[in-house]
Every structure is written in C-alpha cells, then in structure tokens.
Design a protein around this nucleic acid. Sequence first.
DNA 1: CGAAAATATTCGCGGTCGCGTATATTTACA
DNA 2: TGTAAATATACGCGACCGCGAATATTTTCG
Lengths: 83, 83
Amino acid sequence: MDTIARTPQQVGAGIRRYRRQKKLTQAGLGEKMHARQATVSKLEAGVPATQLRILMDALAALDLELVIRPRTKLTAEAIEDLF
Amino acid sequence: MDTIARTPQQVGAGIRRYRRQKKLTQAGLGEKMHARQATVSKLEAGVPATQLRILMDALAALDLELVIRPRTKLTAEAIEDLF
DNA sequence: CGAAAATATTCGCGGTCGCGTATATTTACA
DNA sequence: TGTAAATATACGCGACCGCGAATATTTTCG
C-alpha cells in the first residue's frame, strides 16, 4: 500500500512500515544505505532536520520511490493511516 | 502531472515545476513557507543535506503531498522526465 | 520470567545547514 | 539592447546533523 506523507513524522512512519514489511532491522537497513542504526532511528522518528540524502538513501535501499503530487482530499481510511 | 523522484535533484526539480505552475517566485514561495529565497534555491537545486522540514514546508505551501511507494518500472516517457 | 534482539539515546567531533544580510549572475521582456 | 525581476552565491553565526563508539531502554519470544 502506498503511503501519503505531509509531515516528517509521516515520512518516517512510512519508511518504518516498508522496512518492517521487508523484515529488515534498523541496523540492516542502515548497512544497505551506509548509515548508522541511530540515524535510521531518527529518520523513522521524523526528526525534521534529517537530511534529504538520508531519506533518499533509505528509499533506494528499500526499493521505494517518492511521488510528488497535488494534495488529495483524504478518505476516511486515509485519515486513519495518519495515526 | 505527478512527479517521480528518486534523488534529491529530482525532488528539487519537482518542487520547481510545481512552483512555476503556480506562478510563484522563489521569494514568494519562501514567504509562504517562512524560509529565505536562498533556501528555496538550494532545495530546488537538490542539495542533499537540505533538511526534511524544508521539503515538507515547501510541499505544504504548494498544496502538494508525498507518496511513498514501491519503485515502478520506468516507462520511456518517465525516463525522459528524469532529464 | 529472562535472555537476546531491536531500538532509542548519549558523548565529542567535523561539517553544513538555515538564518540575516548582501551581492553576483542570469533571465525575462519592453 | 537595456533594465528590472528572478535566481544563485557569499559571509559569519548559532544550531544540529551524521559520524564512531558506546550505552540505555524497550520489545520480542523461548
């Protein structure tokens, strides 16, 4: 399932969901993207000062991509996903 | 049109495209998102150390959102867009 | 319950952010 | 072509990144 993200926290939550889907630990993902487990932890926590490079490296390591698009009206289901 | 981004540069290019579509200058966007024109410039240039907060603030100011999804096979047209 | 695994957090360090301010440089168009 | 608008770049500053390394803390599961 695609993940919609409008805040750093939602970005982090999306990364975490996909990482777990792939049965990877933070340390495992960190190895793939040449970052520390502590850095993955902060990314998933949604620390707003996280660098774009870290996000894109994580997406690549998880075989994900970003789509930028106009905001959609949220369905009830999508609203659930925000929590 | 939605924009696919796999690198900081592509993220920046996507932001720029949407900003121009809305007839906004970098300074105008900067005002909306409480950042300087110089910061918008770096975001659009795809500086990898740009902070996630800056990206999300820009998306909000442009009424955009992110989608995180599995990488798609690129169509010929999508490949064009990468350049 | 208890141990192991996973995740969160800390220290000092070097680097670079975004900031204010200001100035090049490039682009648009009359 | 010439000027104005837009964009890129520079300086010093305070802040906080991600790093190595290490240590809490929490979660998982036999």
